[in-house]
Design a protein around this nucleic acid. Structure first.
Length: 505
DNA sequence: AAGATAT
DNA sequence: ATATCTTTAAACTGT
DNA sequence: ACAGTT
């Protein structure tokens, strides 16, 4: 039900992917099947046989191997229910040979979508996955105490010109929204005794399609994540909308999550390794761990649904590597992290940023500033891919930072010790390292007001401040000025000349 | 947040 | 079934 | 090796 809010939201900007079900649920693609041993009691692994009163015996098979065995050995048609967590998905069933009729259990994908678009998505997936004979009609089933309005499903069927049998296993037939039960169902298994199953044939109704290639379940979208009432749903929605400008900056980069499962007032933690319970469709990259031995599997953010999954995990901040999985040694940009220490002012941050600009000008380099969204400012210097490794980039930033601190010791420091930074802006060259945690451009920050790390022009350095751009107003700005960080994505500079000028080569 | 374990 | 517990970073500096 | 820093 909750996911529907997002279905309707997305329909407003032409979504090709439906949000429903969870990873491992019914709409995933076919999994690989190699051996097919028929278990001794293979048939009996069907845990909930149902007779749909059309001569079709429907079973839910406990595992993929049994499903395959059953499909091979079966003489007549047999219906197989989808399920979650090890049970066959619709994609699995599509891959089976034999007289198998797929039966979608709506529960396995989070219920019947309440929007026509959502229903069309599911139907489209089915239509594109099965030969027409196997899905005429499409057989589905729902077991719930609260059947939603079936209007959208009926409309979708009509638009898609498909027929559907919907088996309603409901405790109370009054939940059928006026639809007349037309076929009785006999339950063969040991179902709940308080359940009086009823069949409904949506006779003559027609329906539609869509591709639910990246099913995603969202949880607790109404949980307050920021004290102003901004919810987790708002966060997910933001990242979904920001995908267009954000994804290019994350492409191919291993992601560190900064997670706040209970909002910015709750506990938080970093998570780098892929947790293993992410959806199958999420991409990962192997990273060799430097100081620790071994390899680490990181998640990537390759599509909008990945961003939404991150947000659903309570990941408010997204921290991408500064290099791509294809060439982890070489960052695509240098970062000047300008961090105001205790007792310093925003004015000093502006001064520091301007000094960076002056230095870059003198070195014939181009940089791009962004509000960190938190306390300070970031300046990115796009680099030509594969030209300089992290150590070189770090040395360059450190050299510039030291010159700045020497030229203006009252405002700038590069001192590692916190007490020595008091009243100054810390230029942190160490952000230029593999696996470092810097909030991505367009990342929300876990602070009151949901500020965003937003690119600005050099002119705006003196006029904008952190908090000016936040979750509530960022869309208008990005639509107005576009992606000011696009040149960072483009890369293109080398540090050779600058290193000579700075005498650090 | 989500999975694992204990009751 | 439900309540509670467990897990969730790593690179870098400077002693 | 170890504590401190992000």
């Amino acid at each position: 039900m909750q996911a529907e809010r997002f279905c309707s939201f997305f329909s407003s900007f032409d979504v090709d992917v439906l949000i429903l079900g969870s990873a491992g649920d019914g709409l995933e693609g076919p999994r690989e099947v190699t051996e097919l041993p028929i278990p001794e009691d293979g048939w009996l692994l069907a845990d909930e046989p149902v007779d749909v009163s059309t001569g079709l015996v429907v079973v839910r098979v406990g595992d993929l191997e049994t499903a395959v065995a059953l499909a091979d050995a079966s003489v007549g048609s047999i219906g197989m229910l989808t399920g979650s967590d090890g049970f066959p998905t619709m994609g699995d069933l599509a891959a089976l040979d034999g007289p198998v009729v797929p039966v979608l259990d709506w529960e396995s994908i989070g219920g019947i979508p309440t929007s026509v678009e959502g229903c069309r998505a599911v139907i489209g997936f089915i239509v594109s996955s099965f030969e027409p004979e196997r899905i005429d009609p499409i057989r589905t089933r729902i077991t719930t105490s609260s059947i939603p309005d079936l209007g959208p499903l009926a409309s979708a069927c009509e638009m898609e010109q498909v027929d559907m049998i919907l088996v309603l296993d409901v405790p109370d037939p009054s939940h059928l929204n006026g639809l007349q039960p037309s076929v009785e169902t006999r339950r063969l298994g040991s179902g709940r005794s308080d359940c009086e199953p009823v069949d409904v044939i949506a006779d003559g109704e027609r329906w539609i399609p869509l591709i639910a290639s990246r099913p995603l379940r969202l949880s607790n979208i109404d949980k307050e994540f920021f004290p102003d009432g901004t919810t987790k749903g708002d966060l997910i929605e933001y990242y979904a909308r920001a995908a267009e400008v954000l994804l290019p900056h994350l492409a191919g980069r291993p992601i560190s999550m900064s997670r706040y499962p209970n909002g910015i007032g709750g506990e938080s933690f970093y998570e780098k390794r892929s947790p293993g319970h992410q959806p199958e469709w999420m991409e990962t990259a192997v990273v060799d761990s430097e100081s620790m031995g071994g390899e680490i599997d990181f998640l990537l953010a390759s599509d909008r649904e990945s961003l939404m999954w991150f947000a659903n995990m309570g990941c408010i901040e997204i921290h991408p590597f500064h290099s791509q999985a294809s060439d982890l040694e070489h960052p695509d940009y240098a970062i000047f992290d300008l961090d105001p220490a205790d007792g310093s002012t925003w004015d000093q941050v502006v001064t520091a940023t301007t000094m960076v600009k002056t230095m870059l000008d003198a070195l014939s380099l181009v940089g791009y500033p962004k509000l960190s969204g938190s306390k300070g400012m970031h300046v990115y210097v796009p680099l030509e891919q594969g030209q300089q490794d992290y150590a070189r980039v770090r040395r360059f930033v450190a050299a510039v930072g030291e010159l700045m601190a020497r030229a203006n010791p009252t405002d700038i420091t590069v001192d590692w010790k916190i007490p020595n930074r008091k009243g100054k802006v810390f230029v942190d060259a160490n952000r230029n390292a593999s696996g470092q945690t810097i909030a991505s451009v367009y990342s929300v920050r876990p602070r009151p007001g949901a500020p965003i790390s937003i690119p600005i022009t050099w002119d705006e350095v003196a006029t904008l401040t952190n908090g000016d751009v936040h979750l509530g107003n960022v869309a208008a700005r990005v639509e107005g000025v576009g992606d000011l960080f696009a040149p960072v994505q483009a890369g293109g500079q080398t540090l050779d000349a600058a290193e000579e000028r700075l005498e650090i080569s």
